[in-house]
Design a protein around this nucleic acid. Structure first.
Length: 136
DNA sequence: CGTTTGACTACGC
DNA sequence: CGCGTAGCCAAAC
């Protein structure tokens, strides 16, 4: 899946979605992955297991200067995925705290409180990302 | 080119 | 809960 030229589209779709995450909210790699329809020949279960890694790959290649809030994406456990103590982890946490996102004593965000609900329907329609169930 | 690495996640202990 | 692991691919060396 996501074989070229689809990979490029996948990356750009990730960035588009991440750009929709409002300040003060966080999303997860898996949540973003679940918004992107798999290739026609891809089993959804497999997709769900593998795609989050590719979301991370896409995010690692995030273009600078395009106002993409990369720091609002954390993992499904509510923690920052960069190694603890790394400069990148510190930077991500700093940016999130500036927006009001709180971390507990173990460095975890309460996803119940801060998780993004997802893009609005206008965005989904514009990007042609509406899931089959939501069509019509 | 072959190898290693990776901003993940679900699942089993 | 926490830790280890499978999954199995594209970048980055």
């Amino acid at each position: 899946m996501f074989n070229p030229p689809n990979a490029k589209t996948f990356f750009e779709t990730v960035w588009e979605i991440v750009r929709e995450i409002p300040a003060g909210s966080v999303s997860s790699y898996g949540q973003i992955a679940s918004m992107i329809p798999p290739d026609a020949d891809m089993e959804p279960a497999r997709m769900q297991r593998l795609a989050p890694r590719w979301v991370g790959t896409a995010l690692r290649k995030t273009p600078r200067g395009k106002s993409i809030p990369w720091h609002r994406v954390i993992n499904s456990r509510g923690t920052i995925s960069f190694p603890a103590g790394s400069p990148q982890a510190g930077e991500q946490r700093r940016l999130l705290e500036l927006e009001g996102v709180e971390f507990d004593c173990r460095g975890r965000v309460d996803l119940r409180r801060f998780s993004w609900e997802g893009p609005d329907e206008a965005f989904l329609r514009r990007r042609n990302l509406l899931p089959p169930r939501a069509l019509g």
